[in-house]
Write a protein that binds this DNA or RNA. Structure first.
Lengths: 257, 257
DNA sequence: TCTATTGTTACTTTAGGGGTAACAAATGTA
DNA sequence: TACATTTGTTACCCCTAAAGTAACAATAGA
């Protein structure tokens, strides 16, 4: 029926502040170059009765030009200018908001010793923040090459200036990556990738300790990924444990615990 | 009651895609550093029952971190990172939309001989477009120094490469501007600043002719500003008329028309 | 004169956001 | 232990913006 309009484009325009119909009408006008309300309606499927209002508001916003007459003709303003302006306005707004937020919080102290992060982006963000705070050494344990791979370049940079200890459950899985890995062995790997708690399977994907005081553990529970940030003495203890293991060539696991 | 939250900030956050309550909750968390749902509610005025859902969605978006426990504590992710990410996503989206729109229209031909532009931004945009198309000469008539002033730097640039003829209704009003103006005289000025059509007062603010083929006339009707773009033989005729006036030192106005 | 199109108006429906009340569970207190 | 408070959740309501529908007067064309 209405083959001409790319739904992805409409979706993008919506994110830029257009309503669905505004997006359709504007996109329709761009491809028609110059058209009546009816033509826009026929191309886009926007109800004819609505096209008039919609084009009027677009015209007030400066996205559409009007030629008076009977019938009235409409024309789209060059997308370069329209998108450019929207972008500028958004930018101004973002900068202003950031300033105002910064007035509220000069710095964000991390009071608390344990935190849970539930969004993918939040996890990555926090990991990079930890990378930025390393002053001496970073210990990384991982069972997931894809996940670790995302931080390859960050880790390469860290390696230059700090002590970087990388431990994996299975050297073979990580052979593509250009690091000097230590291995825990199969037994430990199977253990951390299948922790059942209350019938829910937890799979540890990654664990990091920075300078023996801050740690982050990333795991999947069900289909969701989650991370826990810990700043407690236990982190220091874990660090020691890892050193012992590195020296003795083995790690002790108390599966009773 | 809730003095702490700047309404401007909330407004900005809304433009960045937050809902009102999301904005309040996030801003509240930023100033509280670390807080329970109740504390956020008390600071921001967001209904307590809603705070839980709102903080949950913010957490899924990665704008807020959660410390499990009883009660649950929440913490805002650094505004720098949050706003930064929103900005990036918006940017990507804008670029994508622009590409998709450009696929629809490789160029926008200006078919039509008369166009009406109703938005402030649209008018300025079109005027600058006309400036960009000048190949030989531009004639500008203005009765409004403020409006013309907005284009001072554009005109200065044009003056270097093309013939620029500036005409005003009253030299005195424009004496601040660094151009060599011609004057029409009071009679003509009064005429164009007070055109009554069907009881509505039209006031001509600005009129431009580029290369004798394209013209734009900006006027205010009531409290709204409007522009008409014309590409008709009449434009050429007007151009001639102006030359005649420049030579003879006067202009004829047929107020009967 | 008749017909189709244009432009307008009034109405319905839907979804999302906001606000309120009420309640079970957990926690704290006399 | 009994009671009160707080926490977290659920079920509602209201309102608005946007989308869709139907009908009609004015205009233009045959």
């Amino acid at each position: 029926m209405y083959p001409a309009i790319n739904p992805d484009l409409i979706h993008n325009l919506e994110k830029l502040g257009f309503t669905e119909n505004e997006g359709k009408a504007y996109a329709g006008l761009v491809s028609l170059k110059e058209a009546t309300a009816r033509e826009v309606h026929e191309l886009t499927g926007v109800p004819r009765a609505k096209v008039y209002d919609i084009l009027k508001t677009l015209s007030k916003k400066g996205f559409v030009e009007v030629r008076q007459g009977s019938p009235v003709y409409f024309q789209a303003v060059d997308p370069k200018h329209v998108i450019g302006r929207i972008k500028d306005e958004f930018f101004t707004c973002a900068i202003e908001a950031l300033d105002q937020l910064n007035e509220l919080s000069y710095d964000i102290p991390r009071f608390s010793p344990v935190w849970c992060i539930q969004s993918e982006w939040g996890i990555r963000n926090r990991i990079r923040e930890i990378f930025g705070n390393v002053r001496d050494e970073l210990i990384v344990f991982s069972t997931n090459p894809e996940f670790l791979g995302e931080f390859e370049s960050d880790l390469k940079k860290l390696e230059k200036n700090y002590r970087l200890i990388l431990i994996v459950d299975d050297l073979n899985k990580f052979r593509e990556m250009p690091f000097d890995f230590k291995e825990t062995g199969k037994e430990f790997g199977d253990f951390v990738r299948n922790l059942f708690i209350d019938g829910v399977q937890y799979s540890e994907e990654c664990f990091m300790i920075a300078d023996g005081k801050e740690s982050i553990a990333v795991h999947t529970a069900g289909d969701k990924r989650e991370a826990v940030v810990i700043r407690l003495p236990v982190v220091c203890y874990l660090q020691k444990l890892i050193y012992n293991w590195l020296v003795k060539g083995g790690i002790m696991i108390d599966t009773q615990q």
